[in-house]
């Protein structure tokens, strides 16, 4: 069962935080705040922190609004991890699914003055890797921000024991 698998992510893991939230804008704010805490704890500078947190917010808005359609019966799942090399954030909804290949390019001249369609583009612009996975039902986005050696420090309590083996 998908729920069982998702619930298992809430088990305590080093450097990883997971939770499920209602399909509301309050949840978006909560996810955004968690992303800010993650980036700041990882030592990202203000500009990079802003970009990552904004991308995470856009992903959460997509999940709540376009994925779940504010449906109170559906939840979004979010996880945040610093593995010492990268920040890895996942945001999942329980909606109809999304085909990333069918998203119009917002930089194309015919789309530049459209009022919508920039969320996924901003996410891709502001992160190093973006992966889409189709769930049944829903979509999961995995957002990855690589850490520079100087910024990639873990809080002491979260350091994995093999962090210096490679």
């Amino acid at each position: 069962m998908a729920d069982t698998k998702a619930d298992s992510l809430t088990e305590p893991q080093k450097g990883r935080l997971s939770f499920k939230l209602a399909s509301t804008m309050d949840s978006v704010a909560e996810v955004e705040a968690a992303a800010e805490r993650l980036t700041q704890a990882a030592g990202l500078d203000e500009d990079e922190s802003f970009r990552v947190a904004m991308a995470v917010r856009e992903a959460a808005v997509n999940a709540v609004l376009h994925g779940n359609g504010y449906d109170p019966a559906k939840q979004i799942s979010a996880s945040f991890e610093n593995n010492g090399k990268s920040l890895i954030i996942t945001i999942a909804d329980q909606g109809e699914g999304l085909d990333p290949d069918k998203i119009p390019d917002p930089l194309a001249p015919e789309n530049l003055l459209r009022g919508t369609g920039r969320g996924i583009f901003l996410i891709r612009s502001f992160l190093d890797e973006v992966h889409f996975r189709q769930l049944h039902p829903g979509t999961e986005l995995t957002l990855v921000k690589h850490l520079s050696p100087a910024a990639g420090k873990l809080p002491d309590s979260d350091k994995p024991q093999d962090s210096d083996t490679k």
Partner: peptide, 16 residues
Amino acid sequence: NYIDSSGLGELVSAFT
């Protein structure tokens, strides 16, 4: 101090 894709959309809509 902050604008998201929705806010950008509103700026574009205002312009057009």
